[in-house]
Amino acid sequence: MYLKVKALLKEKRLETLVDADLDGKYGEEEVEELIQVALLCTQSSPFERPKMSEVVRMLEGEGLAEKWEKWWQKEDIIQQNFDHSSLHHAYWPLLDSSSNIPPDELSGPR
């Protein structure tokens, strides 16, 4: 789902990610920012996720653009260098799983 949301955001297809009951009555820029924050908060590594204090600041309009740009560039580099053909699809759940991380470490350092 993570990759699908990222692709829809990149394609600016926000309407597919927003509740249809809103009937298009929402600020596209605000929705885009919320999705960016959500993607930053759902990174596979808990150490890469923002702290709650950072999330609050991003939702208040401070620092999201810089953090998002840094993350987006890093994701693009990883995507370009990753050889998808080298992995069997059965291993994908292992790459994006937090099941092997103790619960007290899931939220990352504070």
Results as ranks from 00 to 15, higher is better:
S107F: 09
E33C: 08
L14W: 00
A20Q: 13
Q79N: 13
G27E: 14
L39T: 03
N81Q: 15
L39P: 02
F82D: 06
S86M: 10
E11G: 02
Q80T: 11
H84K: 12
L94R: 14
I35E: 00
E75H: 06
D23P: 01
L106C: 06
L14N: 00
K74W: 06
L87M: 09
S53E: 15
I78D: 11
E30W: 03
S99T: 13
P103C: 04
P102W: 03
G63C: 06
K51I: 11
E62T: 09
E32A: 12
S44K: 09
L39M: 09
Q36D: 06
E62P: 04
R57D: 14
Q43I: 01
M58F: 10
K12L: 02
W71D: 04
I101F: 02
L94G: 15
M52V: 15
L8N: 00
T16G: 11
A7F: 02
V55R: 02
D23R: 11
F47D: 14
K67P: 07
V55I: 15
L106W: 09
G108T: 01
P109H: 08
M1S: 11
V31R: 00
S107E: 13
G61A: 04
L14E: 00
M58A: 02
L9W: 01
Q80D: 14
L8M: 03
K10R: 08
M58V: 04
S86N: 11
H89S: 11
S86A: 13
S97V: 05
E60S: 06
E62Y: 07
K12H: 08
K6Y: 10
P46T: 04
Y91N: 08
K10G: 02
M52L: 15
L87H: 04
E105C: 10
E30Y: 04
S44T: 15
L94C: 13
L87G: 00
R110A: 09
D19P: 00
D76Q: 13
K12F: 02
Y26W: 08
D23Y: 09
K4I: 03
W92G: 03
E32V: 05
P93W: 01
D104V: 07
K10H: 04
Y2C: 06
W68G: 00
S99C: 12
Q73I: 05
K12S: 07
S97Q: 06
E33F: 03
W72D: 11
R13H: 06
